[in-house]
Design a protein around this nucleic acid. Structure first.
Lengths: 221, 221
DNA sequence: GCAAAGATAATAGTAATACTTTCAATTGTG
DNA sequence: CACAATTGAAAGTATTACTATTATCTTTGC
């Protein structure tokens, strides 16, 4: 066992009051994941979440300005957690090729719940990220929000993958595009395997991780 | 010159009344592209569009049930037009490798306005597709809408690319995932090069098409 | 040339959303 | 125990995404 309690730091501009600082805050995080996974982010409202946790709509606004910021918070937490796992599990691998393949596996494989975080169900959070994360970037406000640092953790994860690629193949000229393609693309392949099965080779036995590891092997040749 | 007027057929479940059948309908298409590009799809409403074209909100509802269906219509039109160009420009190439590279170029290169369609500005429509298309798929309604055939043209384009890949490399085991990755990924790279420049190698001189053509060359080896 | 049909416009109305505000009740802390 | 901070309840607002009704305008068929 590594740690029995993880704390992931999130950009403090994303919340009004830190949800990790109180019971109600942690309840908001825990049940927002359950509720968004259940009904989708579009149908999700603070009113419904309030009813679910026996709390008032106006109290939730004391933690998050709006539901968009809450989603950005959950996303930042998710990528922070992925970064933590990526660093931890690739740290002591000396061979750059094996290290890169391990990194790809962590970043593209289906996520399982992590018992070290009591109020966060990572498997459900992963479902939310697959369906909603790309939408948080594809907005007219992306430049302003990027300047405020809302996507910093995500970009840091991608740049860690860039470094793994360059360690394994220093002369590869498209490391950034490849890294961002793999990370965004794997979310997309996970979605396709559940909903648009005719345009993917991925399924229950053949995961996106296998496709991307094969792709990397071709490129390393 | 190939044709001086193109008509792209779109699934008739996407509209209440065919917008190609009247002046007002064509105006809706033309100005919805301009307005969505300008203010984004979220801020776009039928009321604003009505004001812009000097028409009443309620009249627009006679053509499209809601703005989501209008976006699906524009998307279907776009992919229909891409398919038309793909088929036309790869048709007479005998060498499968050159044919595949040409196909990739058409599907991933920046789009220019096509003078054969008077009321549709393809360059602006391409901007809308980059920002909004993935969101039309990433919904809780995707299975029902897929069953209704709303994504048929898109899936057909991907399967045409699958065939080009398999003609060039018949034993490649991930043709579908690669094709869907390239098409979705190139939209994503176009977005990154304009907004999150630190996680892409693409820019004004190095287009996504160059990255993807290089990737395919690696895979064909 | 006119009547009927069809298309479009004007106006009003509704339910839901995404908040904000105010004030009261409860809880925690020095 | 008092004071501050937190939470809850209720009401209010502007906007959105429509629907419904009725009026007007434009075709087209005869």
């Amino acid at each position: 066992m590594i740690l029995n309690q993880i704390i992931i730091a999130v950009n403090d501009k994303l919340y009004v009051k830190n949800p990790e600082s109180s019971d109600l805050g942690r309840k908001i995080i825990q049940h927002s994941i359950l509720l968004i996974d259940e009904i989708g982010f579009d149908a999700f409202t603070f009113k419904k979440l309030g009813e679910r946790i026996g709390s008032n709509e106006s109290s939730l606004y004391r933690y998050f300005e709006n539901k968009h910021k809450l989603l950005l918070y959950l996303s930042s937490w998710y990528w922070g957690w992925m970064e933590y796992r990526l660093v931890l599990e690739t740290n002591n691998i000396p061979d750059p090729k094996i290290k890169l393949l391990k990194g790809i596996e962590i970043l593209t494989e289906k996520v399982k719940d992590d018992s070290a975080t009591l109020h966060i169900n990572e498997a459900l959070l992963n479902n939310i990220i697959i369906l909603e994360f790309t939408k948080t970037i594809l907005t007219k406000e992306v430049d302003r929000e990027n300047r405020e640092g809302f996507f910093m953790v995500y970009k840091r994860v991608i740049n860690r993958l860039v470094n793994l690629i360059l360690e394994a193949k220093p002369d590869y000229p498209f490391a950034k595009s490849l890294a961002s393609s793999i990370i965004e693309g794997s979310l997309h392949q996970h979605f396709l395997k559940d909903h648009l099965t005719t345009i993917t080779d991925c399924n229950d036995t053949q995961s996106p991780a296998i496709f991307y590891k094969n792709l990397i092997e071709q490129i390393l040749k």
